[in-house]
Write a protein that binds this DNA or RNA. Structure first.
Length: 151
DNA sequence: GCCAACGTTGGC
DNA sequence: GCCAACGTTGGC
């Protein structure tokens, strides 16, 4: 079992939307970054635990935990010409982008702010703080625990 | 809205 | 394969 951090913009789809989704389960899609894609496609497995991170919003930070319930499959949005994330270079049978399904496990009573994460020495070399723009990133067991300890 | 950091594209 | 130009992310 591995740990991850997935970013999302709550104005588009946040942890509250996940909580309201049928079976509190949703497709994690529209990832259009190769490094993130490679993680999704090759390394994210059913049962992996995921921090849900809210970006580009009022309360930037880690909002809760989800669990991967379906491993990588082709992201349908890439094939839909009406979709903003349509990719003309992709074709069914030759998908370029992948998605997974996640189920909510826990919504933190308070978002753990990025501002606070930055002050924790135990997180100094966490990918989130080092490579700010990666939308799917692995989290070490030590970093996972250090974040949990900040709740 | 600004802008730094980083990712992608495409000519050569 | 290099790298300039351009596009995007995301905190502030």
């Amino acid at each position: 079992m591995q740990y991850w951090l997935f970013k999302t913009e709550p104005d588009v789809f946040g942890i509250d939307d996940l909580a309201r989704a049928p079976d509190q389960t949703a497709r994690w899609d529209e990832i259009r970054n190769y490094q993130a894609r490679n993680s999704l496609r090759d390394d994210v497995r059913v049962g992996d635990q995921v921090f849900i991170y809210h970006s580009s919003c009022k309360q930037v930070g880690i909002a809760g935990v989800a669990e991967v319930v379906r491993a990588a499959y082709p992201d349908p949005s890439q094939f839909d010409p009406a979709h903003a994330q349509f990719d003309v270079r992709a074709a069914p049978g030759m998908p370029r982008w992948f998605c997974v399904d996640v189920r909510l496990r826990e919504r933190f009573t308070q978002v753990i702010p990025l501002r606070l994460l930055k002050t924790n020495p135990a997180l100094a070399d966490m990918t989130l703080l080092r490579q700010g723009r990666l939308s799917v990133q692995p989290v070490s067991a030590a970093h996972w625990q250090a974040v949990q300890d900040m709740r």
